[in-house]
Amino acid sequence: MMPDLGKYAEAVLSSYAVSLALLIVLVWLSLRRSAKVAKQLEDIEQKARKNG
């Protein structure tokens, strides 16, 4: 049920695509870094506990 976008279809679709792609990339990068840092911190804290 795609709405009829007329002659501006390209403009509307591309702006949605660009924006959503940017947002998704931002979220993805944030999530990935969050998971990575959380894991690294976990490792370091465990090591510290073992040594301490």
């Binding site: 009829d4 976008l5 403009a11 509307v12 702006s15 949605y16 924006s19």
Partner: peptide, 13 residues
């Protein structure tokens, strides 16, 4: 025309 739909991304951003 239909370009008004861009407003929903442009203005909040």
């Amino acid at each position: 025309g239909s370009t008004v739909k861009i407003i929903y991304l442009h203005v909040p951003a």
